[in-house]
Design a protein around this nucleic acid. Structure first.
Lengths: 199, 199
DNA sequence: GATGGGCCTAAGCAAGCGCTTAGTCAATGA
DNA sequence: TCATTGACTAAGCGCTTGCTTAGGCCCATC
């Protein structure tokens, strides 16, 4: 006897279907290459249905981008606090980041390559999150260099490691010769080489 | 007394200005986010002028993409044939690739991130060039592993090194803490670490 | 000094865009 | 029983899109 809940659930399911359709479409055709009619049709709805559940096309992008960045920041922060050892922190960050971007490469493409389609306010908000991710990764490397377990230029290494992770969103596909987990292990090994970890 | 040449030069200069305006606009706003009116206006021309010099908006993208890929393939091929030493070949490839993508990050963004806006035929042509770039890089690493100067999984290392180079187009800006040449040197060093080059 | 050809634009066309309006319909609570 | 609510859509509004058309202008040539 929870008909209201059922009702809400139905509406929320539709909202989620529209969101998921937007992720797929933005990823495949880009924000500007996607029409609101594309999204609605992919969710099995009329064009107007999108506006029952979401304020605008840009708000959909913002929601996708925000969720994605919060997830990634959480993942990086968890890795940073999971151990006192910079080596373990680095391995955790790289494995988590890589697996997340490979498994979720469709969403990650939107998150990383459609920033310029965000409104100025939304873009500023997202840039703050991206900066925090940078800071956490750099902190791990700085700790490692201080403890003399890493030997590398911190800024270059942080840039390269994040770059490797983000670019997975561009090239990864299920046809790739590695599962997300396998790729994560390979990249963790490369990260150790990049930072010159003592073996 | 070469009025015809002057005439042609003027037309060709206009054509080049339109092309350059298209590069800037596609890079900043994406192919679908750019209008033909944007491009014409940035070149100081009327909207119709674009069609005097180029067949369509997609043909502009194809021209940009083709030129960029041919340049990159040439650069990689030159590095491959410049020496018999895999170490020298790798250093040359990475330095050339990185410097090219940093210095030309605006164009490189279009080349690497607007592939899905190409027509199916044009996309297929470009994918062939990208495959050739992959093959050349893998060949260098394979040679190095055979000669026991590198110690790494060739497929992973080739993927990572190309990934690092391409992603420069996304994040590099003149505000970055490295000039293109400095970045090239840093990345060359990282590449040696990635492939486990004997020191 | 008329002619022909190439660069260029004003105007506009058909189609598609994001989003709104006005209303239908089924389920709910009084 | 009946008014209310909220998910949903048909229709369409105002605007922008890629691209075309029709014609003006400049200039080398005859």
């Amino acid at each position: 006897m929870v008909p209201v809940t059922d009702h809400v659930k139905g509406a929320e399911a539709t909202r989620a279907r529209l969101l998921e359709a937007a992720v797929q479409a933005f990823s495949a055709k880009g924000f500007h290459g996607t029409t609101t009619r594309d999204i609605a049709a992919a969710a099995g709805m009329s064009p107007a249905a999108l506006y029952v559940h979401h304020r605008s096309k840009e708000e959909l992008l913002h929601l996708i981008s925000l969720t994605g960045h919060v997830e990634t920041l959480g993942l990086v922060h968890t890795a940073r606090t999971s151990s006192d050892d910079p080596v373990q922190q680095l391995l955790q960050v790289v494995r988590g980041f890589v697996e997340h971007h490979a498994r979720g490469h469709i969403g990650a493409r939107v998150v990383n390559y459609e920033l310029s389609a965000l409104s100025p306010d939304h873009l500023a908000e997202i840039q703050t999150l991206r900066h925090q991710i940078d800071v956490e990764v750099r902190a791990i490397l700085t700790d490692g260099v201080r403890a003399e377990v890493f030997d590398v230029d911190v800024k270059i290494a942080a840039t390269a490691i994040l770059s490797l992770g983000i670019d997975i969103a561009r090239w990864y596909s299920p046809d790739a010769p590695w599962t997300p987990a396998e790729l994560a292990d390979h990249y963790a090994e490369l990260a150790l080489r990049i930072v010159g970890a003592r073996t």
